[in-house]
Nucleic acid binder design. Structure first.
Length: 310
DNA sequence: CGTGTGGCGCGCCTTACCTCA
DNA sequence: CGTGAGGTAAGGCGCGCCACA
């Protein structure tokens, strides 16, 4: 259901061609995933192909690598995520497709606030060894997931980047978390993933810019050389007037004068006499009358019309 | 069948907390 | 021990989708 939105994001992300998108996507697993972490199976799934990149800070590149380090600290603290009392109640409410979370998010704010102020918070606070006084002051207490919880969530994330209510409930129950916590974790995880994707895409774009700049330089240099060649008298003397040159639009063979005798016939075109189409004038000194794709240019060392004259 | 409404999940941005150097 | 930076759980808000009246 969110795919539409994500697809929209994709179109917003980068104005890549489809090919480039593919290329970018292929870059991801090796760049994003920390060396100690195998690429998640979901990379082949759908996420990367449907999730767009956006420019963000570069700091998040470290996130994944830091995750392992960071989880160290999880074990240091007390397990603050014991199954809250309300979790069971929430599960009990799952009878409709909307289920728990729906009922939770139905009153999202009140639910969150309610959880914060009542027994959940009490339990969380007590599990962290926080006194009641502290607990009463602020309802927002940072909960750190344990290493095991994070690992399970990561595994689950590899399978699917979104959870349906049943999966969420099951996961929450398994981890001893509130469904809302699981939901939040997945939301944040998706955000982190997207951030990293953006980083990769930015790098890719940078390389593209560099390559294009280089190529632009090269082409300008080439134009310079050709211009100087053009003004060389020796060059003129060896040439028939450009206006007499014609090229068959079909086979692209160059013919000179009214005889239409093709010159410079490519080896692969040697064969039965070719019926040339209406010859088109070949202007050697200006740009091609019809745009030529980069790919076409890329196959040649120099400007196409001149290349044929060599 | 088109329309208004409420529920729900998500993305995005932000805040608050936590850990570490 | 204090402090700033970085990471992350969670809050808030808006949006789109869907079911239903």
């Amino acid at each position: 259901m969110m795919m539409g939105k994500e697809d929209l994001g994709l179109s917003l992300s980068l104005s890549f061609s489809a090919e480039k998108r593919t290329t970018t996507i292929n870059l991801i697993p090796s760049t994003i995933i920390s060396p100690s972490q195998p690429p998640p199976s979901s990379f082949n799934n759908n996420y990367w192909t449907t999730h767009p990149p956006f420019p963000h800070s570069s700091s998040d590149m470290k996130t994944e690598a830091c995750r392992l380090v960071e989880t160290r600290s999880f074990l240091k603290g007390i397990d603050v995520n014991r199954m809250p009392a309300t979790a069971e109640e929430e599960e009990g409410g799952v009878s409709s497709p909307n289920s728990t979370i729906s009922s939770l998010s139905g009153n999202k704010r009140s639910e969150r606030e309610g959880n914060c102020t009542e027994e959940n918070e009490m339990e969380r606070a007590s599990s962290r060894g926080i006194s009641d006084e502290e607990d009463g002051e602020t309802c927002r207490k940072k909960l750190r997931l344990t290493k095991e919880q994070s690992a399970v969530l990561e595994d689950s994330f590899k399978d699917h980047h979104t959870l349906n209510p049943k999966q969420k409930l099951a996961l929450a129950k398994r981890l001893g978390l509130r469904p809302r916590q699981v939901e939040v974790w997945f939301q944040n995880r998706r955000a982190r993933t997207k951030l990293k994707q953006t980083e990769v895409d930015c790098e890719f774009l940078k390389r593209c810019v560099e390559n294009l700049t280089d190529e632009n330089r090269r082409l300008q240099k080439e134009v310079q050389e050709l211009r100087s060649l053009k003004h060389s008298p020796q060059f003129y003397m060896q040439m028939t007037p450009p206006t007499t040159l014609t090229m068959c639009p079909s086979c692209e063979c160059v013919a000179t004068g009214p005889t239409n005798t093709p010159v410079n016939i490519p080896p692969h075109r040697v064969g039965p006499p070719h019926q040339h189409h209406q010859p088109m004038p070949l202007n050697m000194w200006g740009p091609p009358s019809t745009p030529i794709s980069r790919g076409h240019y890329g196959q040649m060392d120099t400007y196409p019309t001149l290349a044929r004259q060599k």
